[in-house]
C-alpha cells in the first residue's frame, strides 16, 4: 500500500532523512519510533506530499506522490502533529469543508461528517467553535478530518501527544480499530505506545532506520538474557562466591543492600541462559530468592541504545544499515 524507496530529504546542509526505504502492507499498522528530530515528521510529510523529497520515491496505493500527487492524496488521510483545524469554525463546518476539498461528493458530505463524528466521539460538540474545544477534542476533530474521505492510508503524527491518560487509551483503541480497513503509519517517541498499537515498528534515529520488526520481537532480541538482576536474602559475600562458580556466569556484582536483602547483577556469557541455574543454586543453598529478572535493560534503555549516536554511527559503517530481526 505504501512503498518508500531511498527517501532522502535535505534542508540546506542538514540531512533530515537519509536513504530510508520500507513498505507497508494493506491493513497493517506501522509505528515510527524515534527521538524528537529523528526525521519521523519529515518522512511523513514527504509521504503525504506536503514536502518534496530531495531524492527517492514514494508510492501510495500505486500512485507516485511526486508525479501523480492528486490521485495519491485522495487515498491519504493525514493528521499532523498539531491538528490542522481552523479555530474560528464550528466542528461541523470544518468537517464539511475538509470533506469538500478532499473530493467527497456533495450529496455524501453530510453522511460522511456524521459517520466520522460518531466514530471519533465528537457528535456532542458539532456546533461548538473548534478554538473553544479542549486539546483532546481538537485532536479527535483532527482525526475525523483525516478519515472524512475514507482514505486507504492514514498517516498520524504523534496522535496521542498532549492527551491525558484516558484519552490516550481511547485514541489507541480507535487507531487499532482502523487496522484491516486502513493502512496506518503512526509516529511516537513513547515506547509503550508502539507495543500497544502497532504490528510493526521502524526505529528511526538521525534520519535513518536503525531497527525494524514486531515490537515484542524487538524487545526480546535486544533485551537478551545475558544480564540478570537477583534479589536474595542471605550473606552477600558467600552468595557472590557461589554464584560465580556457575558455568556461564562471568561476573557477579552487588548493586545495593537493603536490610538483609542484597540486589545482585549477574552478567553471563553470550548465548548462555543461566537463569535456571541461578535460581536452583540460591534455593538449594537455603537462601531466600525474592526476585530474578532479565536485563538491566528496560524498554527505555533499549530505545536509548538504539538511538544514541554511537550506535547509529556503528550502523552506518555496517554493510546493512537496518538491523532486521524478523
Amino acid at each position: 500500500m505504501i512503498e518508500v524507496e531511498g527517501l532522502t530529504k535535505r534542508y540546506g546542509p542538514t540531512l533530515a532523512v537519509n536513504d530510508v526505504s520500507f513498505t507497508v502492507q494493506k491493513g497493517e499498522i506501522l509505528g515510527f519510533l524515534g527521538p524528537n528530530g529523528a526525521g519521523k515528521t519529515t518522512t511523513m510529510r514527504v509521504i503525504t506530499g506536503f514536502l518534496f523529497p530531495t531524492s527517492g520515491r514514494v508510492r501510495v496505493a500505486g500512485f507516485d506522490v511526486g508525479t501523480e500527487s492528486l490521485e495519491a492524496k485522495k487515498h491519504i488521510g493525514y493528521l499532523p502533529e498539531t491538528p490542522p483545524v481552523y479555530p474560528d469554525m464550528t466542528v461541523s463546518e470544518y468537517l464539511a469543508f475538509a470533506a469538500r476539498i478532499k473530493g467527497v461528493a456533495r450529496g455524501d458530505i453530510k453522511k460522511r461528517v456524521g459517520d466520522v463524528s460518531e466514530r471519533c466521539a465528537i457528535g456532542d460538540v458539532q456546533r461548538r467553535q473548534i478554538g473553544k474545544l479542549s486539546k483532546g477534542y481538537r485532536q479527535r476533530v483532527g482525526l475525523a478530518q483525516a478519515l472524512v474521505h475514507s482514505p486507504d492510508v492514514l498517516i498520524l503524527d504523534e496522535p496521542t501527544a498532549g492527551l491525558d491518560p484516558k484519552q490516550i487509551i481511547e485514541t489507541r483503541e480507535l487507531i487499532k480499530s482502523f487496522a484491516g480497513d486502513h493502512t496506518v503509519i503512526l509516529s511516537t517517541h513513547i515506547l509503550p505506545e508502539v507495543s500497544k498499537t502497532c504490528q510493526r515498528v521502524l526505529v528511526i534515529s538521525g534520519g535513518q532506520v536503525v531497527a525494524e520488526g514486531a515490537p515484542d520481537e524487538l524487545v526480546r532480541r535486544l533485551q537478551g538474557y545475558e544480564d540478570i538482576v537477583l534479589i536474595v536474602e542471605g550473606p552477600a559475600p558467600e552468595i557472590i562466591d557461589k554464584l560465580q562458580r556457575i558455568t556461564g556466569v562471568n561476573v557477579v556484582e552487588p548493586r545495593e543492600a537493603a536490610g538483609t536483602q542484597v540486589t545482585l547483577e549477574v552478567h553471563a556469557e553470550k548465548g548462555h541462559d543461566v537463569r535456571a541455574d541461578l535460581a536452583q543454586t540460591v534455593v538449594e543453598s537455603g537462601w531466600k530468592l525474592f526476585e530474578l529478572k532479565t536485563g538491566g535493560l528496560s524498554l527505555e534503555d533499549i530505545f536509548l541504545k538504539l538511538t544514541t549516536k554511537d550506535l547509529s554511527e556503528a550502523q552506518e559503517s555496517a554493510p546493512s544499515p537496518a538491523l532486521d530481526i524478523s
Binding site: 499532523p80 476539498i101 478532499k102
Partner: peptide, 10 residues
Amino acid sequence: GTIELLLTSP
C-alpha cells in the same frame, strides 16, 4: 498548521 491540511488535500 492548517497549511498542512490544504497542501495534503487533493
